[in-house]
């Protein structure tokens, strides 16, 4: 097992532990982002992390970098403002699915359209965990949450389709597939243009336990069994994870 701990230089270790519940997957995403930084040896001076609101929104404060904790849903426009002002900065957004796809969804659409050269890592845990477990943009159909006691009547947003013909980068991975997740983030950071990594992560306390999972390990094992890696696809099936480098926009 690789015991390389040099990724820790990107973390404010003295602030740990994080405020996240035992069994939460967010810490795995946080660590994997740092490992991706480490692999690319991103300079600490010149790298900025931006997050929005929610459980995962708190992650920005744990990076040993300049970081911004924006208003709910506004991580992407703040990140774009930083990038367009000072192009030399590496700008990374780390936030949740409710933040990026729900309240901030419009900004995502237009960041894709502008193809702003920033990287977004979306902690997609299928719920609004911080507020107790309400339905979120990635909650599957029929799932019961606090606000959908009879099951989610709607279908989840399949983010990859927002990226069709955009010329941007899209990848999906999970916190079980650590090496794959890291590869997705590394490739995203290397990508010149807008890149988005949907990191499937688990919320046991306010979501999984209501679905019958006994602990977060069971949720992890579900990722292991359910998801198959397919890095060559032009489109991912619901049970596939992988990288899509979308075609550039067909200009009319």
């Amino acid at each position: 097992m690789n015991q390389n701990t040099s990724f820790k230089r990107y973390l404010k270790m003295d602030l740990l532990p994080t405020p996240w519940c035992p069994g939460c997957g967010n810490g795995i995403v946080l660590k994997t982002i740092c490992q991706a930084f480490d692999e690319l040896n991103l300079p600490k001076n010149g790298t900025v992390v931006v997050s929005g609101i929610g459980c995962s929104g708190r992650s920005a404060g744990y990076f040993d970098l300049d970081s911004v904790h924006t208003a709910h849903g506004r991580a992407i426009p703040v990140a774009e403002g930083i990038k367009y002002a000072i192009d030399a900065l590496n700008v990374i957004v780390a936030s949740g699915d409710g933040d990026l796809l729900g309240i901030g969804g419009n900004h995502l659409l237009h960041a894709i359209r502008r193809n702003t050269n920033i990287t977004v890592v979306c902690y997609a845990n299928e719920t609004y965990g911080m507020t107790g477990g309400q339905v979120s943009p990635t909650t599957p159909h029929n799932i019961k949450t606090l606000t959908t006691p009879n099951g989610n009547p709607d279908y989840p947003l399949d983010v990859q389709f927002l990226f069709k013909h955009s010329g941007c980068y899209f990848a999906r991975s999970t916190v079980y597939h650590l090496n794959h997740l890291k590869k997705c983030i590394v490739e995203a950071l290397k990508f010149q243009g807008f890149s988005f990594v949907e990191a499937r992560t688990m919320c046991i306390v306010n979501y999984g336990r209501r679905l019958g999972y006994k602990n977060s390990n069971e949720m992890l094992l579900h990722y292991k069994e359910f998801y198959k890696i397919n890095d060559d696809a032009g489109e991912l099936a619901p049970n596939e994870i992988g990288i899509i480098k979308t075609n550039t926009l067909i200009k009319s």
Binding site: V68, P77, G81, I82, N106
Partner: peptide, 26 residues
């Protein structure tokens, strides 16, 4: 002067805040 027409005023003020934090007058 870098000018951006954003998707709405919320994006506008947030981009301006980002640029200002990045060190330029916005």
């Amino acid at each position: 002067i870098k000018t951006l027409q954003m998707e709405d005023e919320i994006a506008s003020i947030n981009a301006v805040m980002g640029a200002s934090l990045a060190g330029v007058k916005a």
